[in-house]
C-alpha cells in the first residue's frame, strides 16, 4: 500500500479533528471578512421596507433548536426590522418541540429593546398540531385554530388579535424554516390567499427555494448562515451570523481541500496499485 492509497483510506477521525479545529479556531482568532449581498437577500430587505409602517405581520418560527445557528440570527434581524417600522408582530410555530419557546424568548427579548407591549405590539400564538390543517384553517379564522395564545390567554383579551381575524389582515409573512413547512406556506397560504411572503432557510434547503423566488411565490430568500449574515448587514445589526461566517469559511475551504486530496489519492493510489499488479 503506497502513501496515496493510505491517504485514501485515512481514518475518518482525522477528518473530524480537522473539521473541529476549523470551527473552533476562528472563534478564538476571528477573521474580519467582508460579506457581499446577493439579490435574494436584498429582496428580503426591500420587501420588508415596502410594508407600510404599523402593519400587522407574521413571523413564523418553523425551525428546531438544532438549526438555531442558521435560523435564529434571521429571526432576530427580522424583529429588528419589524419593530423599527412599528409593525405588529404575530409569531407562531409549526414545530412542537421548541418552536413556541424560541419564538417567546427571542421576541420578548427584542420587544424589550424596542419597548413593545405584549398583546398590543406582538403576540405569540404558539403551536398547534397538523401544519396543513393549521395553515389552511387560519385562512378562515385564526381564532378557530388558536383559541388562545401560547400562554393560554384567550385571543379576545389581546387587543392586537381582535383586529386580525384571518390572513386578510396580515400584510406580510416572514417564514423561517429548516424543513418542508415553507412549501406549505407557499402552496396553501400564498396560493390561496396571496399574502406576500419571504423565506429564511438553512443552507441545505436554500437551492430548492430558488424556483419559488423566481416564480414570485417567495419575494426573497435567505439561505443559511450566509443569508442571515447578509440580512444582518442590511438591517444594520451585525451579530451571530456575521461572526459565524469566519468558521463557515474555514470549514468550506477544508472540505474543498479534502475533496482535492481525496481525488489526488484516488488517482495516484490507483496508479500505484496498477503498477504493483504489473
Amino acid at each position: 500500500m503506497n502513501f496515496w492509497e493510505k491517504m485514501e483510506k485515512m481514518d475518518r477521525r482525522w477528518v473530524y479533528l480537522m473539521v473541529g479545529l476549523s470551527v473552533i479556531l476562528p472563534f478564538i482568532f476571528p477573521l474580519d471578512l467582508p460579506i457581499s449581498i446577493t439579490p435574494e437577500a436584498q429582496s428580503v430587505f426591500d420587501e420588508v421596507e415596502k410594508i407600510p409602517d404599523g402593519s400587522t405581520v407574521m413571523l413564523v418560527f418553523d425551525y428546531y433548536p438544532s438549526t438555531i445557528a442558521e435560523c435564529e440570527p434571521m429571526a432576530i434581524a427580522a424583529l429588528h426590522h419589524f419593530f423599527r417600522k412599528n409593525c405588529k408582530v404575530i409569531t407562531l410555530s409549526n414545530i412542537p418541540l421548541g418552536g413556541p419557546s424560541m419564538a417567546e424568548a427571542v421576541t420578548r427579548d427584542m420587544a424589550e429593546k424596542y419597548n413593545k407591549v405584549y398583546g398590543v405590539d406582538f403576540v405569540n400564538l404558539g403551536y398547534k398540531y397538523g401544519y396543513v390543517a393549521v395553515l389552511s384553517g387560519m385562512g378562515q379564522s385564526i381564532k378557530s385554530i388558536f383559541p388562545t395564545d401560547n400562554s393560554g390567554t384567550p385571543l379576545e383579551e389581546l387587543p392586537l388579535m381582535t383586529n386580525v381575524p384571518n390572513y386578510d389582515s396580515v400584510a406580510f409573512i416572514f417564514e423561517i424554516a429548516d424543513n418542508a413547512t415553507a412549501d406549505y406556506w407557499v402552496s396553501i397560504v400564498y396560493a390561496q390567499y396571496g399574502v406576500p411572503m419571504v423565506c429564511g432557510t438553512t443552507a441545505v434547503s436554500a437551492p430548492k427555494y430558488y424556483s419559488f423566488v423566481a416564480s414570485g411565490q417567495f419575494k426573497g430568500l435567505l439561505g443559511g448562515m450566509k443569508g442571515a449574515a447578509e440580512y444582518e448587514q442590511l438591517v444594520g445589526h451585525n451579530a451571530a451570523a456575521v461572526t459565524g461566517m469566519s468558521a463557515q469559511s474555514l470549514v468550506h475551504l477544508l472540505i474543498i481541500f479534502l475533496v482535492i486530496l481525496g481525488n489526488i489519492s484516488f488517482f495516484l493510489g490507483r496508479k500505484g496499485h496498477k503498477k504493483e499488479l504489473v
Binding site: Y16, V19, V23, P65, V259
Partner: peptide, 23 residues
Amino acid sequence: MMATMFATLAFYIASAAFRAFRA
C-alpha cells in the same frame, strides 16, 4: 443537545465528501 447533533453534520459532510466525491 439538538444543536450539537445537528452540528455533527459538518463532520459527516466532510468525511462523505472526502470519501465519495471522486472525478
